[in-house]
Amino acid sequence: MKADILRLLYYNETQSIADISKNLSKSTPIVTKNINELVKQGLILDNGLGESTGGRRASKYGLNNTLPYLIISIAIDQHYSSFTISNLAHNIIAQQKDVPINLKEQNAGEIILQKLEDIVKESKIEEKKIIGVGISMPGFVNPEEKINDSYPKNSSLHHLYKQIEEKLNITTVIDNDSRCIAWAEKEFGHGVDIAHTLVINLNWGVGLGIIINGEIFKGATGFAGEFSHIPLSDKNTLCSCGKRGCLEVEASLNAAIQNTESDIENGEYSIYSTFVKVNSNKADALIEAAKLGDQIAINNLGKIGYMLGKGISTLLHILNPNKIIISGRGAEVGDIIAPQIQVAINEFSIPKIAKMTKIEISSLHKDAQQMGTAALVADHLIDNIIN
């Protein structure tokens, strides 16, 4: 019960006893008893009376923001990793964003481990105050077995969590990047209080987090949401999965980058060619070019928006969600791709079904993965602070 209360307050700044009882489906006397004990332990604080709703004002409780406990989150994508140390109030204590680490490199796992050691050492934090380490990464991640089956067993990325636990002696949890992004949107973003939500992680590929009845849906074996590999492309381009015709080859940032570079090779002018020389992150260079009105960048982002809308049309007919949220790195150009997404939905969806679902662009952008990864730690390990 205490852990449930702490978890709830991690996601909600303040709650009354009545709110907590309702959210946890527990009786008021039981909640009151546990609240009082947590206050005595100094883990939560009475933050004073809330606003009047016509009767007696209720006391509001929140986590003690002066608690020294910390969370380490490692948000990994195909080309870049971000390392963050944050506290229970979601304040960032130390961070290294977008560290270039290509997961195709044989020693990628070792590099991630070294970077983690470096940031822990440089931040001079007390390791005993670290609640745990959270890892989010693309691929067939099995959070129960704590492995990534997208990599062979002899790869350091297959059992990255084990190396971190052994090296730092800190409990570590791991999950798929798109599921962590979906959870961040559910708790902090555009999915708050929405029962059925689909969260699309628009990045180098196209991931999907599925929330049904307020809970992450993983499927029978944990691999639900492989949106990238729905065979909707008419191109014969080989996908990263080894198959042809996957949505990813036309609806990802990689696709937009490749098309832009192809246009430049064919004599088209784009400011992207200048930006990419000073910015090793091709996605950031493309996004920057598009924001400045570059027509080649805008056109190619529009193309992936249209294909994304085609894929979304399939999701609308199968799952009929309340809302679909475009999140992740690509959400930063949401205003550019949104019109083309809608064009495709109009073309491929039954209007009566399509109008039941809201399509929204996340304001969390690529920060969603880090926030969801930290929440992964809080969800599984916050009870460590009770004792």
Rank of each mutant, 00 (worst) to 15 (best):
186 K>R: 11
183 W>H: 14
138 P>W: 10
97 K>F: 08
119 I>C: 01
94 A>T: 10
136 S>N: 14
142 N>L: 03
179 R>L: 08
151 Y>T: 03
166 E>F: 00
136 S>C: 12
205 G>E: 01
190 H>Q: 13
169 N>S: 06
105 E>C: 07
205 G>V: 04
199 V>G: 02
126 E>M: 09
187 E>T: 11
105 E>F: 09
210 I>T: 07
172 T>D: 10
91 N>I: 00
152 P>L: 06
209 G>F: 00
209 G>Y: 04
154 N>T: 15
109 G>M: 10
208 L>A: 02
127 E>N: 15
172 T>P: 11
125 I>M: 08
94 A>C: 13
102 N>C: 06
165 E>L: 04
190 H>I: 05
112 I>F: 04
124 K>S: 15
163 Q>N: 11
103 L>M: 07
164 I>T: 06
183 W>M: 15
95 Q>V: 12
169 N>K: 10
162 K>R: 12
100 P>A: 12
97 K>I: 14
145 E>P: 02
166 E>R: 00
115 K>E: 14
196 H>D: 15
125 I>A: 12
173 V>D: 04
92 I>T: 14
96 Q>P: 09
109 G>E: 06
102 N>G: 11
161 Y>D: 10
116 L>T: 15
187 E>V: 00
187 E>W: 05
198 L>C: 08
171 T>V: 11
145 E>G: 00
177 D>K: 04
144 E>Y: 12
123 S>Y: 03
203 N>E: 13
144 E>K: 12
192 V>Q: 08
102 N>R: 07
106 Q>A: 15
134 G>L: 07
148 N>C: 12
152 P>V: 06
157 L>R: 00
203 N>H: 08
93 I>S: 02
205 G>W: 08
93 I>Y: 10
207 G>M: 00
167 K>P: 07
159 H>A: 15
208 L>P: 11
195 A>Y: 08
108 A>C: 00
141 V>E: 00
206 V>D: 00
96 Q>W: 01
205 G>M: 04
182 A>R: 01
181 I>C: 05
156 S>A: 10
99 V>S: 03
171 T>W: 00
191 G>S: 09
203 N>A: 13
157 L>C: 11
200 I>H: 01
183 W>I: 15
151 Y>A: 02
143 P>T: 01
167 K>S: 14
120 V>T: 15
142 N>S: 14
115 K>N: 14
176 N>M: 13
179 R>H: 13
127 E>Q: 08
191 G>C: 07
94 A>R: 02
127 E>C: 11
102 N>Q: 12
120 V>S: 12
163 Q>G: 14
174 I>G: 02
120 V>C: 13
210 I>S: 10
198 L>I: 04
